[in-house]
Design a protein around this nucleic acid. Sequence first.
RNA 1: GGGGGCGUAGCCCAAUUGGCAGAGGCAAGGCGCUUAAACCGCCUCCAGUGAGGGUUCGAGUCCCUCCGCCCCUACCA
Length: 822
Amino acid sequence: MARPFDVKKIEKKWQDRWLEDGTYEVDNDDLRERYYALCMYPYPSGSAHQGHVRIYTFGDVNVRYRTMLGKAVLSPFGFDSFGLPAENAAIKAGTHPRIFTEARIAELKSSLIRLGAVYDWRREVRSHDPETIRWSQAIFLAFLKAGLAYRAEAPVNWCPGCGTVLANEQVLPDGTCERSGDLVERRNLEQWFFKITDYAEELLNDLDTLEWPERVKAMQRNWIGRSEGVEFDLALTDNPARAIRVFTTRPDTGFGVTYAVVAPEHPLLEELTTDDQRATVTELVERASKESEVVRTASSEGGAALEKRGAFTGSHVVNPFNGESVPVYVADYVLGTYGTGAIMAVPGEDERDHAFALAYGLPVVHTTQVPDSFDGGAFTGDGEKINSGFLNGLDTGQAKLRATEYLAENAHGDVKVNYRLRDWLISRQRFWGTPIPIVYCSNCGIVPVPDDQLPVLAPDDVTMDKTGQSPLATHEEFRNTTCPVCGAPAIREADTMDTFCDSSWYFLRYTDPWTPNMAFDPVEAAQWMPVDQYIGGIEHAILHLLYARFYVKAMVDIGFSPGLPREPFKRQFSQGMIRLSGSKMSKSKGNLVAPEEYFDTVGADSLRLFHLFAGPPADDMDWTDQTEEVIEGCGRFLDRVYRLSQYHEVNFHEGVDDSDQEVRRAVHRTIDKVTYDLEHWGHNTAVAALMELLNAISKWARSEHGAERATLDEAVDVLVMLLAPMVPHVTAELWEERHPGEKSVHQQTWPVADPELVKRAKVTMVVQVNGKVRARLEVPPDISMADAATEALEDAAISAVLAGATPERIVSRPPRLVNIIV
RNA sequence: GGGGGCGUAGCCCAAUUGGCAGAGGCAAGGCGCUUAAACCGCCUCCAGUGAGGGUUCGAGUCCCUCCGCCCCUACCA
C-alpha cells in the first residue's frame, strides 16, 4: 500500500497558505488574551540542522497550541546576525560579512518554512540592520549617561602572528592561536564595561520568582557566586600605619594564618617588595601578566592541583589574632579582580594555601579539630576550634561571629558580601558587530555620538585581517571625525559591542518594530512582556539569560523603557541537545544531519513528530543508526491516521453501544492527557497517548462489529485537532477534506474533555495478602476505604488464602489497592 | 575540587509522584494479504529497574554508600 497522500505537495500547499494568509501574524491591538511565545533568535549559520529542528518544533507546537486555546500569540523571529564566524568566513572567502550572513539567513529561513514553523515575519529583527544598530547604540548611550557604562583597562588575547586580538574560543587549550599556532599573549587595552555587578543582588534574588528549570537557576546562582565574609586590615610589621586589606569567608581560622598573599596586580606590591626580593618578584609578575587567561585556566584540570607559583616580597604583616609577624608573598593563585586582591593564608584549612605552603616551606597550623578519619592536608570542614586562643572550644559558626566582632574592634574589620560576578566587558576588537558610538576628543574627552547622528555604521571597505588592531581603526575616513561638542578633530571608537548586547533586547524590539524614532513603544512592549514561554539551548543558560535580565532591569531603572516588568522571561525551557556519536551536533563539529533530505522524503511532519516523540524534551538525545527507522515509524503513524480519517476499511453499526462509549471515554481521556503533557513538557508521552488512541479507534472501527457514525466522527476530529500543533500540514489537509469550507483546524478551538467521560466507570483494584497479589476486583473509582476493605475480605479467592486467619492489619488505598497483613 | 542530571526489555522510552514494572515506538520472529517482494494488517518474544544497604504493609520512585556515563563551572579566598 503506497502512502495515502503526497507529502511534498500538501506541505508546500499549507506553508504557502500560512504565509499568504498571514495566519500567524498578530497585531498590537488584538483584543484576545495575549501570549508571547519565543525561541532564542539564532546565529545564522546556514540551513537548519537537527538541533534547530528540535527547538523550533517545540516552539511551533507551543505557538499553534496557544492559538487554538484562543490567545493572541506573538510569535516573532529574527537573527543574531553579528558575530565572529561570519567575519572569519568573509576573510577566508574574500567577501563581505553582510553578503555572507544574508545568504545564511536566507538558507535558515527557508529551512524553517519547510519545517512548517510559523512566525509573524513582519516583525523580523536582524542585529546587523541599520535600525537595529541604531537602537543598540542608543541603549548603550543611555547606559553611559546613567553611569552604567565605563571605560577601564582589561586584558585581551593577543596573537603576535596574526597581529590581532582573539576571542577565547580561538585560543587552543595549549595557549596557542588556532590559526597561526603562535603562543597567545595577554595585553591590556582600554575597554568598555557595563556595571552588571550593581545588579548582582537583584539578579540573584529574582531567580526565586522565575519558572525556570532548576538547573538553569542553579547555574546562574553559581555564576553570580555570592559569598559572605569579612574584610579587614593586616598591618605591616615595619610600618603599622600601612596595611593590606584582605577578604575572608573564614575569619574563624585567623589563628592559623601563617602568611599573606597579594595578587601580581596588587597596587601595594611595589611598596611591599624589598630590594633584595625585587628581581624574583618582577620576574613572577611579568610572567603572570603575559600569560593569557586561557593558559592560566586551561591546565587547571582540578584547580587545587594546579602548580602554585609565587615569590616572597620581603615584607611582613602582623596577624591581628595573635600578634605574630608573618611573611607576605605575591602569587598568581590570588586574583587581582576578586575581593581585595589579597588574602590571609590559612594552609591548615584551605587547600590552595596548603599546596602553596608545602611548595614554599611555610608552616601549617590547624585551627579546627579534624575528624579521626581525616588524613589530608587542609581540613575545610566544620568542627571545634583549637590552637585559637579566645576562640578555642567554639564551633565554626560561633567562632566566625566572635572573630568578626574581634576584627571589627581590632583590625578595621567589616562584614562584606562579595560576588564572583564581574562587570561585563563589552568591547570587541572586531568588525562585524555594532560599533560603539563614542568619539574621543582631545579637548572634550569621551564624547557620546548625539542621537541624531545614530546609527554609527561601519563602512564597507574595511580590511579585516592582519591589522594589528580593531579593523575599524585602520579605516581613516571612519576613524577620523570631528568632535560633536567642540568641532575639533577627533577619533572614533573602533571597537564593536559584544553580540550579547544585541541579544539582550531584541525580544523587546519584536513587540513593536514599527513606531518611528523609538526602539519600541514602551506601552506596546509592556503589553506583551514578559515573554510567557522562552525556549532555547542550555548553552545560553548563563550568559545570554543573565545579560538580558540585566538589560531589562537597567532599561527600566534609567527610564528607557518604563512600565516593563523587571524580569523578561517568565517561563524558560532549555531543550536537550542532540548528539551524534557522542558529541554535540553542531556546525563547528561538522557532524550535522540536514533536515532537508527528510523534508524531501518522509516530510516535515514526520520529522517533527520524531523530535517530539524521541524522549523527554529536556533530555539530550542521541542520533543513532536506529533514528532513521524511528522517523519512518512516525511517518507510518501519520499514514494510519490518514487512512483512518478517510474511513478506510471501517465498518459501521447503528445506535450507540458499550463499545462506542468506551471509545468516547478513551477520546476524552486523551484530550486530558495531551493537554496536560503540552503544558508540562511531556511531548513524548503526548505523542504516545495519541498513538494509543489511534490504535484504539482503529481496532474498534475496523472490527466486524464496527463503529457508530457520530462517535467515530467525533473521535477522528479530536484526534486530528490534538495532533494539529505537532503535525500541522497533514492535519490541515485532513481537516479540509473532512470539513470542506470550514475554518482550518488551526483556527479550531482546542478540545475540552468532558469530566464525566474522563472518569472511569470501573477501576481494577488489587488485593494483596502480605504484599502478594491474590485478587483483582472491579470497583467504582470513588469506593470508600471501608468498602474497599470489606469487598476485599469478602472475595472468595482472598478468604481462601486467609483460610480463617485473622488479619493483623488492613492497608486500604482505594481504589487502587488493599493489602491484608496477617 | 564544586554544582546539576542520568542509569528500567536487544534499542529509544512509560510507570497516575510510595501501590499490579509496560503506555508508545524501533528492531527481531511468526501468520495473513501477494505469483513474489515491498507496503499493509494481526500476533509473539524480551527486563524485575547499575550494585549494596536502610525506611515502609509495600520502593523503579524516599534515605545512605558505591560503580558507570553526561553536562556546567572552576585557583573566587
